[in-house]
Amino acid sequence: MELILASGECDYVNEVICAPANVNELFEFRQPIWTILGFPITRTVFLILAIAVIVSALLFFGLRKKSVIPSKFQALVESLVSFVKDGIAIDIIGPEGVKYVPWLMSVFLFVLVGNMYEVTPGVNFPVTSRMALPVMLAAISWIVFVIAGIKRQGFRYFLGIVWPSSVPVALRPLVGLIEFFSILFIRPLTLAVRLFANMVAGHLMLTLLLVSGWVFISNVGEIGLKAGIGIAWFIMALGIFVFEIVVIALQAYIFTLLSAVYVQTSLYPEH
């Protein structure tokens, strides 16, 4: 297997860090590995589809036995399900949140595994740093919370947004305008951008530090003591690596939590 991150050259003699000429090289893998019925299976597409396989396998092997006394793996999967069901859906939305558990659960596991690729040896690329996934997930969240609002309140859902009864009449047009853009445009946008930006930043930091560390250390014969910089980059990368594991879990949680909060505000606008 050829280990190629992206094309580029590093002037390790004159520079102290290796930066790619084009940052897209760290994220874009558009060259198809296979083509199935005209559909290009790129590395990213493969990894995205693999999320479905990984999550399905995790759930299948974790929940198939239904043991009264669970194994460690079963307990782990059950705690994940329970975390989303009780800790997010029911805690945030209320008893009605049970209806939204399949969607919230899917979002959480999808984002979690997609993020986990960032620190998975041999992969080291979070597919959630590709805008397609945050946009898709945010669009689904938008559809769910708007439909929830319409189903609960009918047309008054939109009226409640543009003409909020809880603020003084004089302020309603202004607040209504802000709310309209905030709820219907900014919400999905921030959902998508927050996840995307966090994963892009994490991936950039890790790849730059690891690649620089590797390049400087492996060229010790040519650059001498300057190779010590590579060690520093590696140590820093280790710290960032641990930090990124926290960010990965946190971003999956935040995306799911905010999606639940948006549904809750659609169902209970008075809150």
Partner: peptide, 30 residues
């Protein structure tokens, strides 16, 4: 010159730099 980015990770070939970005860093593509 040395291929600095021939390191970890991808199985894919290097990404061809798109005409839009023209080899410049970042860009709307992302």
């Amino acid at each position: 010159m040395y291929q600095a980015w021939n390191l970890i990770l991808a199985t894919a070939e290097p990404t061809p730099i798109s005409a839009e970005t023209g080899g410049e860093s970042g860009g709307i593509d992302l």
